[in-house]
Amino acid sequence: MTDASPFNQLLPVGSKGKLSGGWWGILALIVTEGSLFGYLLFAYFYLAAQTEQQWPPEGLPVLLMPAVNTAILLASSACVWISEHCIRRRQIYWSIAAMILAIALGICFVMIQLTEWDRKTYDMTSSLYGSLYFTITGFHLCHVIIGLVVLLLLLIWMALGYFDDRRYAAVTIGGVYWHFVDVVWLFVFTTLYIFPYL
């Protein structure tokens, strides 16, 4: 090379934030998982549009608990965001606290969702609506649980002192997955709870 100067800049080494492979990988994963939920909701609308059954079987859904639950999940997302923000500002203890709160809120969401399931008078096999309702919320709940495991791991790693403002790509990556799971919930919520009112 005649002119090597552009080639001797200082470059970051290893998994640095959004330069890391993992960040790009999680975005690709989100695209494909997003399509998965897209197809699930497509199936819902496709079947709902043609149905001659009572839809949902119990009449219009009660909105109170699901709405509260939605708020809980969004609050949890906010906590994850704060946690990442605090690492960047080297406030690791705040970061850990926010993460604990995020996990607690996530667990609340799961518990409330499970009681919602319990209150239903039908199950997956009793009607077409039941099949759709439990499959869609079940898929989402699985994602929430996986997300919680991820958050828990992040918490452990933070507590072990693995991350500071120089290297914390895992938090960014795990965090964006959690935000994704929460955004998906907004679509699921709108479809299952708001759409029947329209």
């Binding site: 079947l47 043609q50 096999t125 009607s127 077409l128």
Partner: peptide, 15 residues
């Protein structure tokens, strides 16, 4: 025992 494609219970094979 779900009913996504089950014609007898409102499922749709075309799905």
């Amino acid at each position: 025992g779900t009913h996504f494609f089950d014609v007898a219970n409102g499922g749709k094979p075309l799905l």
